[in-house]
Structures are given as structure tokens and as C-alpha cells.
Design a protein around this nucleic acid. Structure first.
Length: 546
RNA sequence: GGCCUUGUGGUCAAGCGGUUAAGACGGAGCCCUCUCAAGGCUCAAUCCCGGGUUCGAUUCCCGGCAAGGUCACCA
């Protein structure tokens, strides 16, 4: 059979680049020893979620801790699934979390290895497919969807492995006449790899994350060019990661099962294989069992969700880092002042099994991270959230910058030996300040004492309150008022003889606290009252009387 | 079902031939204390099962079992 003639008929494109031109156009990168080139290669199918951020972070850290390159490639070979604006959304989301690309789609900079949209690289793929055709390593297949379904049905019925291989690869050995006849009839066709593999042969393979694994040779005649002339993921992956000079392909472990195909493709293409690191996926519990995070099923895990809830981006990153490299937490505790970027990240330290997404842990990391901010820094963070996601009242309140900062200093315990850790995320932190604003202060008083006692305590305290009192003078007055209202003024006294009193000082203080804040719990009441000011404090006390 | 991957407290996990089997989150309790938060201290809780190899297996081997992934002209 005249393979050159067939290839020309199958791929008649003019002006395809020669293989040598491709190699010349994308020369090996000049980088220092040990520098890794990694990439994020999403399909533009919509938002990205926490799982994507997790693997993007592994890519980004790997490239940037080794002095390498992290780039963005868009795998838009499936026209049907394309979603408008998805690329911008990916870049924007990742940027919010501090992950930036060095080159790639829509990225300013060098971009010498582009284009980074696979559809725009069609000539390269087609040139290589043509070469494979000429070398007899690929062939056209005219099977219809129905015929393939039928093959699969028979295989399933016979309990055989499904797919296009061996005797089921019906077009693999068709005669020249049959192929041209089909072509002459104008039938649509795909180009398949003529696999040389043998499933009975297994090889040891070194995965950068999983360590030693075994791969079985591929014997499937996979599609490399779809009937629309666009490559499948497998073919595009081999060509792109070769020409974009990726050194380490970090991707989800769902790709592990197609690794044999990729190994064979690199081999027939004559490319040297990059290293691979298959990450375990983040899991979540669903109906009693674990399963990997899904874009479709878990919209609440979209990155926009975290933005909306007001999670501090750096906290989410740190949480992810603790999952990525479990020694990060310890390192971080020892290097309080250092950025996570200084941590010696290592793919080989990544876990081998899928971690369950742990909201409690995220929240803990988040509180911790947020407690390190200055009140001013916290204001900036919260204000950013308020402008985008807060209520109109929130936005009005945040115009009073100094007032908010004074509240924040209290809530965060600024100036104390140990900071408070009340704020977990903006959406919750902003609500912690509500009682400082009269326009939305709507307490549902629930006192644990009878009205007379409440009134007695409140009146006694209001009568002596002075804004100038320091903390101990203030508390001395609480004690005095407590005694006047029938409470023990010293804890010891109460414990010695509880029946003699209505309660102890803390119970008495609680009455004032509820009057001022509407809640039995709050940070230092003395300071709360100072921030509110004498007038409003006293007004609240009298409003609380029964 | 075939193939691949993974199995240490509730969760994330160190350890990889001999350990009182780290640490963190969560839980319980105590202390501190005007409440809450924070902090300090204490406690409960783990090596999937069965065979080997070995003086000795959580660690090595084999076999089960369980979980996850994957079997498209989707990525």
C-alpha cells in the first residue's frame, strides 16, 4: 500500500509544518539545573473548584520552588463542552488565591511556546498524524458510533475487555481498495493509532508522587484525530507537553489508567517521556462513602463559593499546603514570619491516598491566619468582602473606618500577648460586629433572672458607670452593683454559700452584657462600652430594663 | 468484571524491622477568667484481615477483603 498517497488523501492540508520546523520552533528551554516546567491544562468547561486549586498549587509550587516555569494551556479540543468566559474565570480565581502563571493563554509575557489553545495548534497535530500515517503507525477508521456500540455490546456480553483492539479493530487491516472505497463514498473517519503494545507485558514505572507503580502496555488503537480533524486529549497531550517542554506532568490520578496510551504515543512520536506525578484527588463524604470532588456534583466547592463566604485566600492556600505536604504545618509553626512560598515544597512528599476535605481544619487554619493580621489589615480584607458581598448596611458601616478598626482591635485582641481567634472568614467576622451599630442592633433579651433583679442590677450599675474608668475600676463598679442587686461580689463568697445569693459576679455581669450587646457572650465588656461611648451604653442599659 | 491505585485514632497524618506508635484538627475534662475567645495542662481514640519471612513485624513477601479511579470520536 502506498502510505504516502493515503496520508495525503487523509490529511490533504497544505502548508503543514515539517517535523523539523516544529522542533526548531519550540527548542528545549534554557533553565537552570533542576528547574521544573509544569502546567495547568484545564478544559474550558466552567468554574474550577477546590480540587483544581489543590493540583494547581502543586504545579505552581513545584515550578516556583525550583526556578522553573508554570504555564496555562487550554484544552479546548471538545467544542461541545466549551463555556464562554471559562478561561478568564480560571485565571481570575487562581489569581485571587495568589497563584500566577509565567506564561500561557491570556497571560502577558514571553509566551514563546504558544499558541496555548489547542485548537490553534491544529497544524502541528495534523503534521504528526500525517507522519504516523506515512509510517504505517496510524490508520483511518470509518466505524460509526452504532458499530462501536455494537462492538462494545458484544465484548461486554462475552465478558471481554471493551475497546478497539485485536480482532475488534476492524479497520486496522483493511485493504487499500476498501479504504479508498470508503473515502470515495465520503464517509467520515477518525485516525487511530496502530498500537504495537501487548497487554501481557507490564513495566515498572516511577511516578513522582506514587513512587513505583506498574503499567501494562497499551494495545488499544485509540483515536488520535477525531472526525473533525481535532486531536483527542491523548494525542494533544503528547505533542504539547513535548513541544512546550514540560518536565513534570502533574495531573489527577484519574489519568493513571491512560498512562499506557501516553507512553506508547510518546514512543511512536519519537519524543522523550516527561516525568509524571499523579495526585490523589480530594475526597468528600457522600451518602456514607467517599468519592472524589466533582465539578458537577459539588458546586459548593467552587472557588467562587469560598470567595463569597469570605475565606481568606491565604488561609485556603495554607490549608491546601498542609494536605499537599504534611510537614508543612510543622514548618509553618516554626517559621511564623515566613511566607508559605519559602517552604521547600516537594512532590515526593505528597500523600498517596485521597484526603477527605476537612472543613474544621480549614476553619482552624483560617482563624489562625486571620489572627495574624493587624486591625487595619483586617479592615482592608473585610471591606473588600463587604463591597462585593455585604449588605447595604454593611457598606454604610464600613465607611466609618476608624470606628471599625477600634472594634476590630477589640475583637482580635490586638496588643495582647495572645490574639483572639474569633474571625474565621469575612462572612462570619462582619456579623461579629453587628451589635456596635444601632441601626441593626435588635436584641432579643433573654435574661436568666427575674425582672426586678435585672432592673436592680442595671440601675445600680448605670448609676456609677464612668467612661473614664479603667478595666479594674470598671469591674469594681460591677462588683458593687452586683452586691447591691443581691449577687455575691466575690466568687469565693458565692462558692462558700451559694444559697445566700442570687448568683455570683459573672451572673451579674452577664445582665449588663446582655443589655449592652444582646448576647451573654462578648469580648471585654468594659472596652465594648468605651467603643460605644457613655451615651449609647447608658441608653442601651435603660432600654433593656423590663 | 478487567486493569491500576490506596488501606495507621472520627479527620489529616509521621514512623518504614525492635518506638511508651509523633504532631495537628475535632471531642471530653481541668486551670485561668466578668462571659466568650485565646492560652496552659490532662484524657479518650489508630497500625484492615489471614498466612508466611524473621529472635522480633505497623513496617518485608504472599493471599484475601475494603475503598477509590478507569475502561468514549470527554478531558
Amino acid at each position: 500500500m502506498d502510505l504516502k498517497k493515503l496520508a495525503a488523501r487523509l490529511i490533504p492540508d497544505e502548508n503543514l509544518p515539517s517535523l523539523e520546523e516544529c522542533e526548531k520552533a519550540y527548542p528545549p528551554r534554557v533553565l537552570k539545573e533542576g528547574a521544573e516546567v509544569t502546567r495547568l491544562a484545564p478544559s474550558p468547561t466552567g468554574f474550577i473548584h477546590l480540587g483544581n486549586l489543590y493540583s494547581a498549587l502543586a504545579d505552581e509550587r513545584t515550578a516556583h520552588t525550583t526556578g522553573g516555569i508554570f504555564y496555562l494551556r487550554i484544552e479546548d479540543t471538545d467544542e461541545k463542552r466549551k463555556v464562554d468566559g471559562a478561561v478568564e474565570s480560571v485565571i481570575r480565581s487562581l489569581k485571587y488565591f495568589g497563584i500566577n502563571f509565567d506564561e500561557g493563554a491570556e497571560i502577558e509575557g514571553e509566551n514563546a511556546y504558544g499558541p496555548y489553545y489547542q485548537r490553534r495548534r491544529a497544524p502541528i497535530y495534523r503534521a504528526y498524524a500525517k507522519d504516523l500515517l506515512e509510517r504505517g503507525l496510524a490508520y483511518p477508521c470509518f466505524c460509526t458510533e452504532e458499530e462501536l456500540d455494537e462492538i462494545r455490546r458484544v465484548q461486554t456480553e462475552n465478558k471481554e475487555i471493551t475497546g478497539y483492539y485485536g480482532k475488534y479493530a476492524v479497520w486496522r487491516d483493511k485493504s487499500e481498495e476498501e479504504i479508498y472505497a470508503a473515502l470515495d463514498r465520503g464517509l467520515p473517519y477518525v485516525i487511530r493509532l496502530r498500537s504495537q503494545g501487548d497487554v501481557n507485558i507490564k513495566h515498572a514505572f516511577r511516578d513522582a508522587i506514587k513512587g513505583s507503580i506498574t503499567v501494562t502496555e497499551n494495545d488499544q488503537d485509540v483515536v488520535i484525530l477525531k472526525s473533525d480533524g481535532i486531536p483527542t486529549y491523548h494525542f494533544a497531550h503528547a505533542i504539547d507537553d513535548h513541544f512546550m517542554r514540560t518536565t513534570l506532568v502533574i495531573r489527577g490520578e484519574e489519568w493513571l489508567s491512560s498512562l499506557p496510551i501516553h507512553i506508547e504515543l510518546f514512543k511512536v512520536l519519537g519524543f522523550s517521556l516527561p516525568r509524571y506525578g499523579h495526585t490523589c484527588s480530594l475526597m468528600k463524604v457522600d451518602g456514607g462513602t467517599k468519592r472524589k470532588l466533582s465539578k458537577r456534583k459539588d458546586p459548593e466547592l467552587s472557588l467562587d463559593f469560598y470567595r463569597g463566604a469570605g475565606y481568606y485566600p491565604q488561609a485556603v492556600i495554607k490549608y491546601l499546603m498542609t494536605i499537599l505536604n504534611s510537614n508543612f504545618e510543622e514548618w509553618s509553626a516554626k517559621n511564623l514570619e515566613k511566607s508559605y512560598k519559602e517552604f521547600p515544597f516537594s512532590v515526593s512528599k505528597m500523600g498517596k491516598s485521597g484526603a477527605l476535605f476537612d472543613l474544621d481544619k480549614l476553619n482552624d487554619v483560617s482563624r489562625d491566619e486571620l489572627s495574624k493580621l493587624s486591625p487595619e489589615g483586617m479592615y482592608e480584607f473585610l471591606n473588600g468582602w463587604v463591597q462585593e458581598f455585604g449588605t447595604d448596611a454593611d457598606r454604610a458601616h464600613f465607611k466609618e473606618r476608624e470606628y471599625i478598626i477600634s472594634i476590630l482591635a477589640l475583637i482580635m485582641g490586638a496588643g495582647q500577648k495572645k490574639r483572639r481567634k474569633d474571625i474565621e472568614r469575612a462572612g462570619q467576622g462582619v456579623r461579629l460586629m453587628d451589635y456596635f451599630f444601632d441601626d441593626i442592633f435588635a436584641p432579643a433579651y433573654s435574661f436568666r433572672f427575674d425582672n426586678d433583679t435585672v432592673n436592680a442590677m442595671l440601675s445600680a450599675f448605670a448609676a456609677t458607670y464612668s467612661e473614664d474608668d479603667d478595666n479594674s475600676a470598671w469591674f469594681a463598679k460591677v462588683k458593687a452593683a452586683a452586691a447591691a442587686a443581691g449577687f455575691a461580689s466575690e466568687n469565693a463568697e458565692y462558692k462558700a454559700n451559694p444559697s445566700a445569693y442570687k448568683g455570683n459576679v459573672s451572673d451579674a455581669a452577664e445582665i449588663v452584657r446582655i443589655a449592652i450587646t444582646g448576647s451573654p457572650n462578648s469580648p471585654d465588656l468594659c472596652t465594648v462600652m468605651k467603643i460605644l461611648g457613655r451615651e449609647r451604653s447608658l441608653a442601651r442599659i435603660s432600654a433593656a430594663k423590663r
